[in-house]
């Protein structure tokens, strides 16, 4: 104790400087936001996203689903449920199984939205199967969304960079948007009583990470990227010869979700 007192007396100024410095540095640590979790220290999956500080990004995101690559494992559904804690029986994304028989009758099923994978073949069909494939479904992020037009309280909207989002604090749960969506991607969350849908993982994308379903897909059947970048994989798919189409083009919503190898039977 005596030693400390002596030291303080010897150099009061230095002591005060140190204490002040420590206090200021300490309080700055509280103010300056630290990277929230270790996830953020991993290299970003979408190049250049962490430099995008404007309200809206300069990118033009599109989502491409390759039907010829989907194996129906349901990894995307598992990831989606984990990321958003989606209540049982509701699906932000799901995988449908299409079966076309030799009489050209089409059968579609999606047991538990594909969340448990496809374990059993579909039985009890009257004719032999001609063709069968999986079709993952998610929000189409329309250029001209029907859902935003019908919202009476301005709770759902399209951002300047093309994401259609739902403001939970504004939504009154009237379900107009659920009915307006031509792709049936919206539902009313039974816990919050507000409309909910796939957001293409807006919070992940803005931090530089791919949507959860894209990140986990083992066969790269789901692709996500920037159309303004002519080197991106999605640009190449949409500008080079491929069988590419959107769902229900006649509805005029102009989706940003494209399907590679889409068959006419898919609705």
């Amino acid at each position: 104790m005596e030693d400390i007192r002596q030291e303080i007396d010897q150099d009061r100024r230095a002591f005060i400087r140190k204490v002040l410095g420590g206090t200021i540095a300490g309080s700055l640590l509280l103010v300056i936001p630290m990277p929230a979790s270790a996830v953020l220290r991993v290299a970003e999956q979408i190049p250049g996203m962490q430099e995008e500080t404007e309200v809206f990004t300069k990118k033009r995101f599109v989502f491409v689903v390759d039907i010829t690559a989907c194996i129906g494992c349901g990894s995307c559904c598992v990831a989606d449920k984990a990321e958003y804690n989606v209540p049982d029986g509701n699906y932000r994304t799901w995988v449908e199984r299409y079966i076309i028989d030799d009489h050209d009758d089409v059968y579609v099923d999606s047991p538990n939205g594909g969340l448990d994978g496809y374990i059993q073949p579909r039985e009890g069909l009257p004719h032999p199967t001609r063709d069968t494939f999986f079709v993952p479904k998610l929000c189409n992020m329309c250029e001209k969304p029907s859902c935003t037009q019908v919202c009476p309280v301005g709770a759902t909207y399209k951002t300047g960079d093309g994401f259609v989002l739902v403001d939970k604090t504004r939504c009154v749960g009237c379900s107009y948007c659920v009915q307006a969506c031509p792709y049936s991607v919206r539902f009313i969350n039974p816990e919050t009583r507000t409309a909910e849908k796939c957001t293409w993982c807006y919070h992940r994308v803005r931090k530089g990470y791919l949507p959860a379903c894209v990140s986990v897909c083992p066969t790269q059947a789901r692709k996500f990227g920037d159309l303004n970048d002519t080197n991106s994989e999605v640009w190449k798919i949409l500008h080079e010869p491929h069988v590419v189409s959107v769902l229900k083009p006649d509805m005029g919503n102009q989706p940003a979700l494209h399907y590679v190898g889409l068959r006419r039977e898919v609705v």
Binding site: S37, V39, L40, V42, V55, E83, G154, A155, D167, T169
Partner: peptide, 27 residues
């Protein structure tokens, strides 16, 4: 920015990630 609450964009951006990437696990 339009007929919606502009601050919601910031709110949506700040939602915490639940899933990482394989690289997060390999750290």
């Amino acid at each position: 920015y339009g007929h919606y609450r502009g601050a919601d964009i910031e709110d949506q951006k700040n939602i915490a990630l639940k899933l990482g990437t394989n690289d997060s696990c390999f750290q």
